[in-house]
Nucleic acid binder design. Structure first.
Length: 868
RNA sequence: GCGGGCGUGGCGGAAUGGUAGACGCAACGGACUUAAAAUCCGUUGGAGGAAACUCCGUGUGGGUUCGAGUCCCACCGCCCGUACCA
């Protein structure tokens, strides 16, 4: 064995090839009409200052796809940028006195360097940050176009106010009643806000999910639920003894079929009728106030009892003038869904049943299961406090009796649509969505300024496009809480573009989700002086493979889908669905350690002793705290820089792809990383040992087995990479490496074996190149190639070599495996039967019993069935 | 509550309804070495057996099928998402 092979040194090799790729502009993409394109995009990072292992995993996957597609002949676009606006920059300014701009751009520089050390095949010539005026200028221009198109609305509304971050949050940013970033309890405030009319597209956004067949079903379902379509009926009830101006009460229901099961009305505490009725009823007013105070936290909702207050008012049943139903204010009715009022049908709605039982209201079942046993059961359940919400047949419902609930729905709707009340139909079919318009105003400095001017005489005036961008002023102070733009002495004072009079700028900035809602389109033409160059977008869009975390399943992905529609409506883009195929990768997790006093301990400080884990320096006993997502607070982070320095980028990349399927959480372990590193060294040795054997000779029969393995590996890895099954592709590569190693170990080899070896090793290098690009380049050079791997085509499997001419067929007797035989591929039953019946193992298993069936699955299995 | 996913060796995980455990890690045995590291070779689901071989085995219980980790039903457990949405 050649003992003179030097160890593979990633510290010199990796920077060398990175420089080569940069120098040769290997990854700069240009439109080439007629040539198939492939757009790979990973969700761009927030420039927090350092990349973490999650980034390493995300960008490695994207890079493998990009390099693989590139080798396979596609014109690949693989860009990178920075989601650079947002609160951490401002927090840094407040806490440490650094300017958000310098903080951000310094972080970008640091992270760019880190990403480059990973050897990603990115087109850096297209890089931008969303805080570049050259980027947000187009965002502002498009907003003005959206305004003209009626996609923007300014309205005073109750907003979620984050008292820690001093900003408004979108509903989507409120999690369990707390700010998604600060974790502070959210308050309700009344403010004038800018909204994007995403609800104009509710139906389209819902329906088009059906077209996104390359998205995970889970994400589509989450979006479906978020949009929350329901079909129901708006229904007006005449009120009796109501305060002035409240002659009727409009409710929304999805179950008009259960109208004859009505036993009470319930309205939200914020409903105008509740307010009016409270005026001369202090007790009611107090109850409404307590409902408002109850809050929206999950804990509050889960523990809250159904509570109500009888207003003393009555509503008249729309189908029976003599039927009067009491009106309650109830704590479980939300003002911002439907009309903030319902009719309660306790037998078929659990909340209504809880409420009715508490306040002694009637419970009349009106839907009965068709099956008699089920019907009896449902009656018992209802009496015991469990509502029945299944299908069945209508009862106790006059003209609806005997119908299905579906028919009854239509029966009630058809009838009441024709009944007039105060000159209007008393009922109207109505589709309701849970989706709200998107509030985009933020009272922050480090965001894209909203390009409008408030003029006392002209009102809202958009900034003329020639005056864009509206730049953020740089001389701001963060001494006072609230928005530095509002505090700035001069910035907001301008002349009205319309009348020339004194006016003020809007000081709110955009929600940063806007920045990330169109960046994918900007990458097509990052230097164009329009938001998106139509020809470039036409060529590159949509994104063929988008990769990111599941945490963006709703917000970012839904906003982006809306944005592309809005851009289409304003002529900026030619298509509506930006992401053709979506992949959501799992997290990187790591074991956690805790000291006896409950403090988190860095894994690097934990050592294994006979008595379990101890602190490496103090010797204190440690407990393992479970395998969790890497986070600074739990100290279970591994720094990518450290890993790349000690093992190299290729090893880190390889580990990230090995063993665990990409959609699952991967556990970072030192042993696993070390294993990956050993494999890089092994490949390096094999390549060197093969290289000295010289150029490829001619093939003969002795090399056939290895050639077959190599070509089958090419076919399998190609298929696996096409389908993002990285862990399987890697297993195949280990198999090929093992096969190569076996031949290399032999004391003597035939010329044919040497030729096969050369071919197998070259294939191996090209196949692992997307995962370990630096090692592949270096190996390729050692093998004597003058052209770099990035400029070499993906290997092709020879069908003659992947085809099997002999197959192993398993022999079963009564479904139990008893033997296996090697037979020519395609062996028929006529050939197989005598062979199989002659087997000693078969006659032993049959034990003289007659064969009743002889099943042949060609090239797979033979199953002999006999009486037992 | 509702919705979705998952449950396979010591571990990560393979397996178009067709030989369960590919591949890797760990462990054990061996070669090389003064020794160790590195490397290479071998063994490794459980039980029984000297061996041939036999039996058991994919959370539990049923079912469909010649054949089930895979499909169907019920249950148990874990994970994720989500909610007074009328």
């Amino acid at each position: 064995m050649s003992a003179t092979i030097e160890r593979y040194n990633h510290r010199t090799v990796e920077p060398k090839w990175q420089a080569h790729w940069t120098e040769h502009k290997s990854f700069e993409a240009k439109e080439e009409p007629g040539r198939p394109k492939y757009y790979v995009l990973e969700m761009f990072p927030y420039p927090s200052g350092r990349i973490h292992m999650g980034h390493v995993r995300n960008y490695t996957m994207g890079d493998v796809i990009a390099r693989f597609r590139r080798a396979a002949g596609y014109n690949v676009l693989h860009p990178m940028g920075w989601d650079a606006f947002g609160m951490p920059a401002e927090n840094a300014a407040i806490e440490r006195g650094v300017h958000p701009k310098s903080w951000t751009y310094e972080n970008i520089a640091a992270m760019r360097k880190q990403l480059k050390s990973m050897g990603l095949s990115l087109d850096w010539s297209r890089e931008f940050a969303t805080c570049d005026p050259e980027y947000y200028r187009h965002e502002q221009a498009m907003f003005i176009d959206f305004m003209e198109k009626g996609l923007v609305e300014r309205k005073s509304s109750k907003v979620n106010w984050d008292p820690v971050d001093h900003t408004v949050l979108a509903n989507e940013q409120v999690i369990d009643g707390r700010g998604w970033r600060s974790g502070a309890l959210v308050e309700q405030r009344e403010l004038s806000q800018w909204f994007l009319k995403i609800t104009n597209y509710s139906q389209d956004l819902l329906q088009s999910l059906d077209r996104l067949d390359k998205w995970p079903e889970k994400v589509r379902l989450m979006q479906r639920n978020w949009i929350g379509r329901s079909e129901g009926l708006l229904l007006r009830w005449v009120l009796e003894g109501a305060p002035a101006g409240h002659t009727e009460l409009e409710i929304y229901t999805t179950r008009p079929d259960t109208l004859f099961g009505a036993s009470f009305m319930a309205i939200a505490a914020d409903h105008p009728l509740a307010k009016a009725a409270s005026a001369d009823n202090p007790e009611l007013a107090a109850f409404c106030e307590s409902c408002r105070r109850m809050g929206t936290s999950v804990a509050a909702i889960e523990t809250a009892e159904k509570m109500g207050f009888n207003t003393g008012l009555f509503a008249t049943h729309p189908l029976d003038p003599d039927w009067k139903v009491p009106v309650y204010v109830a704590n479980f009715i939300l003002m911002d869904y439907g009309t903030g009022a319902i009719f309660g049908c306790p037998a078929h709605d659990q909340r209504d049943l809880d409420f009715a039982r508490k306040y002694g209201l009637p419970v009349t079942p009106v839907v009965r299961p068709v099956d008699a046993v089920a019907a009896a059961q449902s009656e018992k359940d209802i009496a015991a406090g469990t509502a029945y919400d299944g299908d069945g047949v209508m009862v106790n419902s006059r003209f609806l009796d005997g119908m299905s609930p579906e028919a009854a729905f239509a029966g009630v709707a058809d009838k009441l649509e024709k009944v007039l009340l105060a000159g209007r139909p008393v009922a109207a079919r109505k589709v309701n969505f849970r989706l709200r318009d998107w509030g985009v105003s933020r009272q922050r400095y480090w965001g894209c300024p909203i390009p409008v001017i408030h003029c006392e005489s002209c009102g809202i005036v958009p900034v003329p496009k020639k005056d864009l961008p509206v730049r953020l002023p740089e001389d701001v102070s963060f001494d006072k809480p609230g928005n530095p733009l509002a505090h700035h002495p001069t910035w907001k004072h301008v002349n009205c573009p319309s009348c020339g009079g004194r006016a003020t700028r809007e000081t709110d900035t955009f929600d940063t989700f806007i920045d990330s809602s169109w960046y994918y389109a900007r990458f097509c033409s990052p230097h164009a002086d329009v938001p998106v160059d139509p020809a470039a977008a036409k060529y590159w869009m949509g994104v063929d493979q988008y990769i990111g975390g599941i945490e963006h399943a709703i917000l970012h992905l839904l906003y982006s889908r809306f944005y592309s529609r809005a851009m289409q409506a304003t002529g900026h883009l030619h298509m509506d669905e930006p992401f053709t195929s979506l992949f959501t990768q799992g997290m990187v997790v790591h074991e956690t350690f805790k000291s006896a006093s409950g403090e988190w301990v860095f894994p690097t400080d934990a050592a294994k002793s006979e008595n379990g884990w101890v602190h490496a320096t103090t010797g204190e006993a440690l407990t393992t705290g479970g395998i969790e997502k890497m986070s600074k607070s739990k100290k279970n982070v591994v720094d990518p820089d450290t890993i790349i320095e000690s093992y190299g980028a290729d090893t880190a990349r390889w580990f990230m792809l090995s063993d665990t399927p990409p959609e699952r959480d991967i556990e970072w372990t030192d042993a696993g990383a070390a294993g990956a590193w050993k494999f890089t060294q092994r490949l390096w040795r094999m390549v060197n040992e093969t290289a000295v054997l010289g150029e490829k000779g001619s093939h003969d029969a002795s090399g056939l087995p290895l050639r077959q393995t190599a070509h089958r590996t090419i076919a399998a890895v190609t298929d696996d990479l096409m389908n993002l099954r990285f862990n399987r592709a890697i297993a195949r590569l280990y198999e090929l490496a093992n096969a190569v190693g076996t031949i290399l170990q032999k004391d003597s080899r035939s010329a044919g074996e040497n030729a096969a070896l050369r071919e197998a090793v070259e294939s191996l290098v090209l196949l692992f190149a997307p995962m370990m690009p630096h090692l592949a380049e270096e190996c390729w050079r050692v093998l004597g190639h003058g052209v770099a791997v990035v400029d070499t085509a993906w290997p092709k499997a020879d069908p003659a070599l992947t085809a099997l001419n002999e197959v192993t067929v398993a022999i079963q007797v009564n479904g139990k495996r008893r033997d296996e035989i090697k037979v020519p591929k395609g062996a028929t039953r006529e050939v197989l039967e005598p062979m199989v019946m002659a087997l000693e193992s078969v006659s032993r298993a049959l034990d003289g019993k007659p064969v009743s069936k002889f099943i042949v699955v060609p090239d797979r299995i033979v199953n002999i069935v006999c009486a037992n």
